[in-house]
Simulated assay, not measured.
Amino acid sequence: MTKFNNKPFIIGILFTFIIAAISLISSKLPLLDKVGALTIAIVIAILFRHFNGYPESYRPGITFASKRLLKFAIILYGLKLNIFDVIGEGSALLLIDGGVIIVSIGLMLLLNHYIKGDKIITLLLGIGTGVCGAAAIAAVSPILKAREKDTAISIGIVALIGTLFSLAYTVIYTLFTISPEVFGVWSGVSLHEIAHVILAADFSGETALRIGLLGKLGRVFLLIPLSIILIFVMNLKSQARNTNRRIEMPYFLIGFVLMAIFHTYVPIPQFIMQIIEPLTTICLLMAMVALGLNVSFKDLQNRAFKPLIGVIIVSMILSTITFIIANYIYG
């Protein structure tokens, strides 16, 4: 490949990196630190698309970011998991986590039956709400054969709603007397992203944060069996339609599992994790920029409004149910 042919790829990568870096820096500023880098990255990308159009000349690099870097980030995401912690100390929370995932997906699909929203976006939002936000949506999108614009819309909605709910949790904690244990469980089993759990639970202190992360990582762990179930269901649908397009376990999910196993059995030095964590974040942000460039305001208006209403309702129901459960068991 000549240097000329490499140029669109390099510029595309740099383009997503620059916006990702701006998003990350902006997320440290007052007020914007409550919004989160993921939301900022997607919003900037959508606004760029609206005012400047899709940067066709950068497409090779942008496509690489939306596909390869996203999968690479999900593989590295596995290093957040310690399986022994999840099935050991977090085993009681794991049962609640499983219920949250089932209720989230089930309620979204049931509600969508009445409001007639986009089915794929609705399912992605149910999975993102129940499991672990952007990472879950990105992981299952290839299994569900979702379009990149649907993936981006779903991730943007989950990131935004999760941020609003995590801020609401801190207000509720301030107004009412809630023990750190209850608040940690409530945050961990109901909020959308790991970043949202940290934002809310850390407000209550170290105990709440530790329990919250344990509850959240249980939901991340359940992404593995959920993906297997989705592959099985999609293959059954293919057979029913008499097509031979079988869906295998995506390689990046296998990598995710292997990284989780590796982190469980092999101690990783802190200085290495201090490199891996920001690398994971920047790769994920670059992928969010690339995905966001596929979304137009017309897409948001025509396809996202009803699923947005659905995920708000479902998130409110989940928050209420999980608070009652957390207070009953740990209060």
Rank of each mutant, 00 (worst) to 15 (best):
K116H: 11
I172A: 10
R303N: 15
K298Y: 09
S296A: 06
G331S: 00
R59Y: 04
F256H: 01
S66N: 04
L107Y: 08
G205A: 03
A290P: 13
G53A: 08
N82E: 01
S154P: 05
L230T: 08
T243W: 00
M108D: 02
I178A: 10
G133M: 05
S91F: 07
G90W: 09
H263Y: 03
F72M: 05
T264H: 01
I22T: 03
H113C: 05
F256L: 05
R241N: 08
M273S: 11
S187V: 09
I22E: 02
A152Q: 06
V311Y: 06
I313K: 12
I172N: 10
S190L: 07
L199Y: 14
A73V: 08
A326W: 03
F48S: 14
Y114K: 11
I44C: 13
A20E: 12
T264G: 02
S27F: 14
L191R: 04
D299Y: 02
A21S: 15
G90Q: 06
I321W: 10
A138N: 12
I19E: 04
L111D: 01
K80N: 07
E193H: 03
G184I: 00
G126L: 02
Q301G: 01
K237G: 00
I313G: 08
A37K: 06
L109A: 01
M286F: 00
F183Q: 01
F203C: 00
S179N: 03
G188F: 08
K67E: 15
V158H: 04
E89I: 04
V311N: 02
Y58K: 13
T39L: 15
N52D: 08
T2F: 01
A201D: 02
A201T: 06
L24G: 02
G212Y: 14
Y173M: 11
H196C: 11
D85F: 12
L47M: 10
L81V: 04
K116V: 06
I153S: 05
S319C: 10
F203N: 13
V295S: 09
I272K: 14
R245D: 14
T151M: 02
G126C: 04
P269A: 10
G99D: 10
A304S: 15
S296Y: 09
T129P: 04
S179P: 00
I75G: 00
L14T: 04
I198R: 00
R147N: 14
Y77N: 01
T63A: 14
T207F: 09
V295N: 13
I313S: 12
T63Y: 15
G88N: 11
F9E: 05
A208T: 04
I42Q: 09
L109K: 09
L160R: 09
I42D: 08
I178S: 04
I44G: 11
F15N: 13
S190H: 08
G133L: 00
G205V: 05
I105L: 05
T243N: 06
Y54T: 14
L94Q: 03
N302A: 13
L125F: 03
I137S: 03
L125T: 08
M108A: 05
K71P: 02
L175P: 01
N242M: 09
L175R: 02
E206D: 12
T322G: 03
A139K: 00
L300W: 02
I46E: 14
V43G: 03
V103C: 09
T207Y: 03
R245K: 15
A159Y: 06
K71H: 07
T280W: 03
L308T: 15
A304L: 13
I329Q: 09
A200L: 11
E277A: 14
